[in-house]
Write a protein that binds this DNA or RNA. Structure first.
Lengths: 343, 343
DNA sequence: GTTAGCACTCTCTTTCTTGGAGTGCTAACA
DNA sequence: TGTTAGCACTCCAAGAAAGAGAGTGCTAAC
């Protein structure tokens, strides 16, 4: 059943009011709040309908109504009026364009949390499909070999290997050339056993080193795959009584501490390649079960081709969706601008 | 005034009991709990004395007594019976000897939290006095110069610099030699302007690069100084009603999230060079003010000469001091064993 | 279709009551 | 002089009772 115009307006008024106050909304309030000029009795009738349709709930017989998950969903899908919203501090951060990715991400999470008064998370972009760009072996010590790996996007990884045999700079140079000519431009998946065997042959007596180096490279690139997640503002949940009781707060805090639990949120997003928009999970819809009393708004950002991460904002169901979505959209644009400009 | 033997026994009984139950302890309980064979009336008299001396407090007139901060202090200084306590899982972790220091530290924090049921923190060891061991410049791209810096303890830092001029491998080799001969073995503090000028002269037309490289090195080593702190088990505070009210919980969680606030704890410890033992802060004694209702037990660990960090355990004042101190001591020994063996 | 009016329900807050735990004091005892 | 039994007293915690307020659903009138 489609809602008629009036029901929609009432619904909207109920939600708006509840988002602000967190208290059940009564018919009298609506009667004054809207420009419908209807008496509270009429509103009551309409509200009874809306309740029957499942959009609102009465916590107990003589209380006002609060939106159900279905009601929020309606609001989010059809009634929201998000505006683009600048976050001044963010601009500053983004302009600086920190080369330390982790600093940048931590900052974004923090500013976002301060600005929205909700908890935030941000996952570091995933690089896994990237190509090897450069490999450098150097001797740090008589028996310690430093392996530096640079992949596209200028992500650098280091390993130190212990080696038995003595290596002079000449051999090192050869090995460097060997590795770079064979491997540069390849992704991890493209390196196969044939190549490795060929390289080992060419390396002669130093073949074992080649093996170790490749293992080290593979491992250090792999290590990046268990994904980094930064969070901020977890303490904001205490601002919302409906989340602040011990049981719930404890579960939520745990989720933010054991960032493993947040990965679901990221994976859900990145799995779907076309999904670059903003996703809203209300209550039970969220993939993280400790957040079943929250709403979660996520957005996927993309820095360069294939380098994508997820930003999430976690708050009570009566979160200010307009503001959150607006803020996220603006942030996405700013990130786009920043990284498109650069290229 | 010195406490006589009997008062001490009563004091100890009060604390032991309170640590277990978290409830005020009455005279009747003590009368049965101890082997003193005294009536509750006698105990009452003694307790009145202890209260006058400031070791115990009566929350209200008709309640039992609870230890004051001074009482805990007495217990901790004179009555504790810590036993060395193995933490089986820790052994496993330490034996593996992860080369990724951050993984290791996270794991230690986590296991310690699970084991004690308190919140834990661990600071990454500080390297700042360490010497430059190795510098390597390589060209990643036509205009991108990779600077790899290794300092003693095999801590590796990377930077990528954008350079205007074209550099060939011959020049690069020269610059590499120049940098390494001048700088290896020095600490950051020992590099002075004279050296830099000398190097720039020798570098001739590439002197600006030398300047940039040194800046990059300095910066990346500095960056390590804002110290890493890993935490775990913050949600454990919800297990102790005296910490779990919204106000306190929020402050504590904030401290664990904004790890900056925990730095005080680390600095307090590391400042004092001789202080390698275990330190207990009770209530107001703690340097972090949001923890004024907690007790904090810290220990300093040392991996290699000069590489020290701090481990902290944060719980309610009625924390099981014996267990916590025992566990920390054992952990220190295990770390010692591990790193002494290696050398 | 809308509205005024009214009885009804339920929660929240406040007040009062009661039971229990524990104390401090006194007086008796060894 | 130290220890103990006994008793009156205090205070909190939990429950019961009462009242206020908010909001509803229903009916009847417009």
């Amino acid at each position: 059943m489609q809602l008629d115009e009036r029901k929609k307006k009432i619904m909207q008024a109920i939600i708006r009011n509840y988002l602000e106050t967190g208290e059940p909304v009564g018919s009298r309030t609506i009667s004054k709040y809207t420009d419908l000029n209807l008496s509270s009795a009429t509103i009551r009738n309409e509200m009874a309908d809306l309740e029957e349709l499942g959009y609102i709930i009465q916590p107990h017989t003589s209380a006002g109504r609060i939106p159900s998950d279905k009601g929020y969903r309606l609001y989010v899908d059809q009634m929201m009026e998000e505006k683009e919203r600048e976050v001044e501090e963010l601009k500053g951060i983004l302009l600086e364009k920190e080369d330390k990715m982790d600093h940048l991400l931590k900052q974004v999470a923090k500013v976002l949390a301060q600005n929205t008064n909700y908890a935030t998370m941000i996952s570091a972009p995933q690089y896994h499909r990237n190509k090897l760009k450069f490999i450098q072996l150097s001797l740090v010590d008589a028996h310690q070999l430093l392996v530096v790996t640079v992949v596209e996007g200028n992500v650098i990884k280091n390993n130190i290997l212990n080696v038995e045999e003595k290596l002079d700079s000449e051999i090192l140079l050869k090995l460097n050339i060997l590795l770079n000519t064979h491997l540069n431009g390849l992704t991890l998946e493209e390196i196969n056993l044939n190549m490795i065997t060929a390289m080992k042959q060419q390396a002669g007596i130093h073949s074992s080193i080649i093996g170790n180096v490749i293992d080290a490279i593979a491992e250090s690139i792999k290590a990046d795959e268990d994904l980094e997640i930064y969070t901020s503002g977890a303490n904001n949940i205490f601002k919302y009584p409906e989340l602040a009781d011990n049981q719930k707060a404890s579960e939520l805090i745990t989720a933010f501490e054991e960032k493993k639990l947040l990965e679901e949120l990221v994976e859900e997003r990145l799995a779907d390649d076309n999904n670059t928009g903003i996703q809203i999970y209300i209550g039970d819809e969220t993939p993280v079960k400790s957040m079943k009393d929250c709403s979660v708004v996520t957005a996927t950002y993309e820095l360069e081709e294939g380098m994508r991460g997820t930003i999430g904002i976690i708050g009570p169901k009566r979160m200010d969706y307009d503001k959150v979505v607006g803020t996220l959209k603006t942030l996405m644009h700013q990130l786009d601008d920043l990284y498109k400009k650069k290229e």
